[in-house]
Computed example of a mutant assay.
Amino acid sequence: MPPRRVVTGRSPDPRRRFAEELRLLRDQKGDSLRRLAEVLGWDASLFGKMESGKTLGSPEVVEALAQHYGVGDLLLTLWELAVGDPKQFKEQYRRYMALEAEAVSLWHYAVSAPPGLLQTAGYAREALAAGGLSGQALDQQIEARIGRQMLLETDDPPPFRAILSEAVLRNSLPDARAWREQLEHLAASADRPNITIHVLPFGKGPHGLMSTATMFLRLLDGRTVAYTENDIRGELIEEHSRIERMQRAYDAVRDLALPPAESRNFIARMLEGVSCEPST
């Protein structure tokens, strides 16, 4: 096979390419970082970090930059590729992340934490920090996790069904305001037409998914794959017979869970017990 031709000389890595494009556009316009901050209203250090690859910034910042440089959808497209790049995740998650981005429907069982697709940035920070991440690595993983949620926010988003063990709603964050934001986000998500949330109350007895968070993905080719995760390991499952058994277990759990309307009321009651004041 002949060697691949280098067409642009730019990095093939999505995150690096995004940073390179930001630096190139600013150089072409002749702006300093300080000037960019004055015009757009964000701190100059943010733009510096974006150009060095330390952060990707928010979609609002990227859209403002695109308008400033007059490049249409180019920057937002590069940002989406960088945020969704599977290379940002550990090796065991890479294939799963690629499949998740292609899913036509998703359904999840949550043992003790909200699904990543329904987490706020505040919750993600606490959860990832508890897992040992800090500094730049922590910031990158938060961006990546929140970036995944764009899958559910497209013009034609896939349906997503989540069953939340009551433990998910009881395992609160130390910061009451951050926890309230997470519960509010779950409540708002439950009202979206493509998202269905069930709550599985305590006292429903043993079931086949008790200690295993599980996500099922239905793909364009009609296949279904599953990703399971516990405190020790994660596993991508593609074997048809195993998937069928797990789907039967999921259906049994759904039958035990509260219907969507009662689940929304359950989340609302949990919200009533959370202070609006910040933790001290």
Score class of each variant (00 low, 15 high):
His198Ser: 11
Glu51Leu: 07
Lys204Leu: 10
Gly208Leu: 07
Ser241Met: 07
Phe89Gly: 04
Ser134Trp: 08
Arg177Phe: 11
Ala64Met: 10
Asn265Arg: 15
Gly72Tyr: 07
Lys49Ile: 06
Glu21His: 10
Leu33Pro: 09
Gln247Pro: 04
Leu271Trp: 04
Arg94Trp: 05
Val199Gly: 06
Ala176Pro: 00
Arg192Met: 13
Arg242Ser: 14
Gly203Ala: 10
Pro159Ser: 12
Ala82Tyr: 02
Thr280Tyr: 09
Arg233Met: 14
Leu24Thr: 13
Arg180Leu: 14
Gly84Asp: 05
Pro86Gln: 04
Leu74Gln: 14
Arg10Val: 14
Ser45Val: 09
Met1Lys: 09
Pro278Ile: 04
Ala37Cys: 08
Ala176Phe: 00
Leu81Trp: 03
Arg26Gly: 12
Asp175Tyr: 01
Ala190Lys: 01
Ala101Leu: 15
Pro59Ser: 04
Arg145Ser: 03
Thr280Lys: 12
Tyr96Asn: 07
Arg23Trp: 03
Met1Cys: 05
Gln92Trp: 13
Glu262Val: 01
Gly30Gln: 12
Gly30Asn: 14
Pro259Ser: 07
Met1Ser: 15
His68Trp: 12
Leu258Met: 10
Phe216Leu: 10
Gly147Ala: 06
Asp191Phe: 00
Ala98His: 06
Phe266Gln: 02
Leu36Thr: 15
Leu78Thr: 12
Val71Ala: 10
Leu183Phe: 07
Leu133His: 11
Asp251Glu: 15
Gly116Trp: 00
Ser45Phe: 12
Ala167Leu: 09
Ala129Met: 05
Trp179Val: 01
Arg180His: 09
Ser275Phe: 00
Leu220His: 13
Val168Leu: 04
Gly273Cys: 03
Leu133Gly: 02
Lys29Leu: 14
Trp179Ile: 01
Asn230Ile: 12
Leu152Asn: 08
Met270Asp: 07
Gly70Asn: 06
Ser52Gln: 14
Arg254Asn: 14
Met50Val: 09
Arg15Tyr: 06
Gly273Pro: 00
Glu235Ala: 15
Glu20Leu: 13
Ala167Phe: 01
Gly208Asn: 09
Leu99His: 08
Gly234Tyr: 05
Ala127Cys: 04
Val39Trp: 01
Ala98Met: 01
Val104Asn: 08
Pro201Met: 11
Trp179His: 10
Phe266Tyr: 15
Tyr250His: 05
Asp13Arg: 11
Leu118Trp: 01
Glu181Asp: 15
Gly9Val: 07
Pro12Trp: 00
Gln136Trp: 05
Ala82Val: 07
